[in-house]
């Protein structure tokens, strides 16, 4: 279990991460989500003991990183964002070095290295120099370095950046498999990735947590309206008046005029009104043929953007309040001075 309490990191006056609090249970796959510069990497670097926090505690399986750094580091496998590697070494040499650094016992080492090579699909390139590998393979070598020694906690900083689609699916299924008997923390700004792999999402913006929840809950919470995507053939253009025939439609917009004569509309209604049944009943009567009808789902993308915008507007409100108070104070002081002068 990983517990993070009041974690803060400051660089001079700049606050990179402020008062983070969260708990990660054993065997969970947790996604750190946030725009660039939100503090994802900083947080991960603190959990792995690469940088020191300004304030706050990090406790991994009962050990405090500031008091027992070696004990904590033994339980963590870390793949940094920039995937640093020793380019003069071959893949196998690099993995062996990482195994040695992580105290993998001499008698288990060979077997462990072979297991990792297989797991990460590096068997074919094991004797190549790292500098001659493509970006995707380098990423895998870095991942292999994190996995060697079978640590309980695996921390991956943007593990799929720069990979081609096939490699991305491979790495994702690998991570999902790892989640069966490891605790996995990964960061990403690709939202679909997080919703596919993770059981829990921590959304960070400007160094603060703005939401911790499951991807499904986040999607539901931020869903404001019910959207239906509707493709129809409508030769008499009866769709124009359809909102008079069906109650509850807030808005109909033409999305696409397809070449085959069909048209795609977006029908928006209130959150709790489902119009699908009514559309099926009414449209045929109006000589409109339905080609396709589906519910538009609120994606994590929407949730993410909404949460960040909410956070922004909240901050702006606070700032406005503050500046207003300041102005009032100034005016008061001015007034007092003027009155004082009069007296």
């Amino acid at each position: 279990m990983i517990e993070v309490k009041d974690l803060t990191k400051k660089y001079g006056d700049f606050v990179a991460v402020q008062d983070l609090n969260f708990k990660i249970e054993d065997g969970e796959i947790v996604g750190f989500l946030g725009p660039n510069g939100a503090g994802k990497s900083t947080t991960m670097n603190m959990i792995t003991g690469y940088i020191e926090s300004t304030k706050g505690d990090i406790i991994v399986n009962g050990y405090d990183i500031s008091k027992k750094p070696k004990k904590v580091k033994r339980q963590i496998g870390y793949m940094p964002e920039s995937t640093p590697l020793y380019s003069d070494l071959t893949v196998k040499e690099f993995i062996r070095y990482m195994a040695e650094l992580k105290f993998v016992k001499r008698k288990d080492r060979k077997q462990e290295i072979e297991r990792i090579l297989e797991q990460t699909g590096l068997v074919d390139v094991q004797n190549k120099l790292i500098k001659n590998l493509s970006r995707g393979y380098k990423q895998r070598v870095s991942l292999a370095g994190a996995l060697i020694g079978n640590p309980e906690v695996i921390i991956l900083d943007e593990p799929t950046v720069g990979l081609d689609p096939k490699q991305i699916t491979e790495i994702r299924s690998l991570i999902k498999n790892l989640g069966k008997n490891h605790t996995v923390i990964l960061s990403s700004h690709i939202l679909s990735e997080v919703s596919q792999i993770c059981e829990k999402v921590i959304i960070i913006n400007k160094g603060k947590i703005i939401a911790i929840d499951t991807p499904e809950n986040l999607e539901n919470k931020t869903k404001g309206k019910n959207t239906i995507i509707l493709t129809v053939e409508d030769n008499n253009n009866n769709m124009k008046n359809i909102n008079e025939k069906i109650e509850g439609i807030q808005e109909i917009t033409l999305e696409k005029d397809n070449e085959d004569g069909t048209k795609q509309y977006k029908v928006i209604s209130d959150k709790d009104i489902d119009l699908r049944k009514k559309l099926f009943e009414v449209l045929p009567k109006e000589e409109i043929t339905i080609f396709e009808l589906k519910q538009g789902e609120a994606t994590l993308e929407d949730a993410f953007i909404k949460l960040i915008e909410d956070d922004k507007s909240q901050q702006e409100d606070e700032n406005k309040k503050k500046s207003k108070e300041k102005d009032e104070k100034k005016n008061k002081v001015k007034k007092d001075k003027q009155e004082g002068g009069k007296k």
Binding site: Y50, R74, P80, P84, S87, L101
Partner: peptide, 14 residues
Amino acid sequence: KNGTEQLLLTSPRS
């Protein structure tokens, strides 16, 4: 410069 320092310093070595 290469960032490999990160590998060393996050390994359980003093």
